[in-house]
């Protein structure tokens, strides 16, 4: 719920930074969900080499799309967790924000998922 915070020092700018960080996570999650939808629906933007935009069917579509959805949920979770942790620590006037390192590890895992997806898409032309 919204709270009234006295705007001392750079409080408003600091909370705005947390908001921007959260929005970046939400944007990434939206793109991950878009990727999952594209895999499930066998759809992509049509091009001169592939005017229909369709791809052949493959049994790996659902597991891969599920992993993308899970990565999107993890990205949203990491964003919300970083926001809430940072919010609390800013209110407590802590010098260092402690969410940085765990957040780095979680988002590295999401990056690994994206990288692995690239490899799978290259190796399995049916997806």
């Amino acid at each position: 719920m919204p709270q009234l915070c006295e705007n001392t020092g750079s409080a408003a700018r600091d909370f705005a930074m947390l908001e921007r960080n959260l929005l970046s996570h939400l944007r990434l999650a939206a793109l991950l969900l878009l990727l999952a939808a594209s895999i499930l629906l066998n759809a992509r933007l049509p091009s001169s080499s592939d005017p229909s935009g369709d791809t052949p069917h493959s049994s790996g579509r659902i597991p891969l799309a599920s992993i993308e959805v899970a990565a999107a949920v993890v990205a949203i979770g990491a964003g919300i967790w970083e926001y809430r942790r940072g919010y609390q620590e800013m209110q407590d006037m802590k010098g260092f924000l402690t969410a940085v390192k765990p957040h780095f590890y979680v988002m590295s895992a999401v990056a690994v998922v994206v990288f692995t997806t690239c490899i799978i898409l290259i190796s399995d032309s049916g997806i």
Binding site: L28, L31, L35, M107
Partner: peptide
């Protein structure tokens, strides 16, 4: 995170 988003866009939609 922005670069990762670009990767996703390039990866599947095009």
């Amino acid at each position: 995170l922005g670069a990762l988003g670009y990767a996703l866009t390039a990866l599947r939609l095009f």
